[in-house]
Simulated scan of single mutants.
Amino acid sequence: MPTTVKAFGAHDVRQPLVPLTIERRDVGPHDVKLDILYCDICHSDMNFVGGEFGPLPTSPLVPSHEIVGRITGTGPEFTRHRVGDLVGIGCMVNSCRDCENCRAGQEQYCLNGHTLVFGSPDPAEPGAHTQGGCSEAIVAPGDFVVRVPHNLDPAAAAPLLCAGITVYAPLKRYIAGPGTEVAVVGLGGLGHLGVKMAQAMGADATVLSQSDRKREAAAAVVADHYAVPGRRIRVHGAGPS
Score class of each variant (00 low, 15 high):
Pro2Thr: 12
Thr3Phe: 10
Val5Ala: 07
Val5Phe: 11
Lys6Ser: 10
Lys6Trp: 04
Ala7Cys: 03
Phe8Gln: 13
His11Thr: 12
Asp12Thr: 04
Asp12Ala: 04
Val13Ala: 07
Arg14Lys: 15
Pro16Leu: 00
Val18Trp: 03
Pro19Trp: 05
Thr21Asn: 14
Ile22Gln: 08
Ile22Met: 09
Ile22Ser: 08
Glu23Ser: 12
Arg24Glu: 06
Arg24Asn: 00
Val27Trp: 15
Asp31Cys: 10
Asp31Ile: 05
Asp31Pro: 12
Leu34Cys: 10
Ile36Arg: 02
Leu37Ile: 02
Tyr38His: 15
Ile41Pro: 00
His43Val: 04
Ser44Thr: 14
Ser44Trp: 03
Met46Leu: 07
Met46Lys: 10
Ser59His: 02
Ser64Trp: 10
Glu66Asp: 05
Thr74Asp: 04
Phe78His: 14
Phe78Tyr: 14
Leu86Thr: 10
Val87Ala: 03
Val87Phe: 06
Gly88Lys: 14
Gly88Ile: 09
Ile89Leu: 11
Gly90His: 14
Gly90Ile: 12
Cys91Ile: 06
Met92Ala: 02
Asp98Tyr: 07
Arg103His: 11
Arg103Ile: 01
Ala104His: 14
Gly105Gln: 07
Leu111Val: 01
Asn112Ala: 04
His114Gln: 02
Thr115Gln: 12
Val117Arg: 03
Pro121Trp: 01
Pro121Ser: 04
Asp122Arg: 05
Pro123Leu: 07
Gly127Glu: 03
Gly127Asn: 00
Gly127Ala: 05
His129Cys: 11
His129Pro: 10
Gln131Met: 09
Cys134Glu: 08
Cys134Ser: 06
Ala137His: 09
Ala137Tyr: 05
Ile138Asp: 06
Ile138Asn: 08
Val139Arg: 13
Ala140Gln: 12
Pro141Gly: 05
Asp143Cys: 01
Asp143Thr: 11
Phe144Pro: 10
Val148Cys: 15
Pro149Phe: 08
Pro154Val: 03
Ala156Pro: 12
Ala156Phe: 13
Leu161Trp: 12
Leu161Gln: 11
Ala163Trp: 12
Ala163Thr: 09
Gly164Glu: 04
Val167Pro: 08
Ala169Asp: 05
Ala169His: 11
Arg173Val: 01
Tyr174Glu: 02
Gly177Asn: 02
Gly177Lys: 01
Pro178Thr: 07
Gly179Trp: 15
Thr180Ile: 06
Val182Lys: 00
Ala183Val: 03
Gly186Asp: 00
Gly188Gln: 00
Gly189Lys: 10
Leu190Val: 05
Gly191Ile: 00
Lys196Thr: 11
Met197Trp: 01
Met201Trp: 15
Asp204Cys: 09
Asp204Arg: 15
Thr206Val: 02
Val207Met: 01
Arg215His: 11
Ala218His: 01
Ala218Glu: 03
Ala220Gly: 02
Ala220Ser: 09
Ala220Lys: 13
Tyr226Met: 03
Ala227Met: 14
Gly230Leu: 08
Arg234Trp: 03
Arg234Asn: 06
Val235Pro: 10
His236Met: 09
Gly237Met: 04
Ala238Trp: 12
Gly239Pro: 14
Gly239Thr: 13
Pro240Ile: 00
Ser241Cys: 09
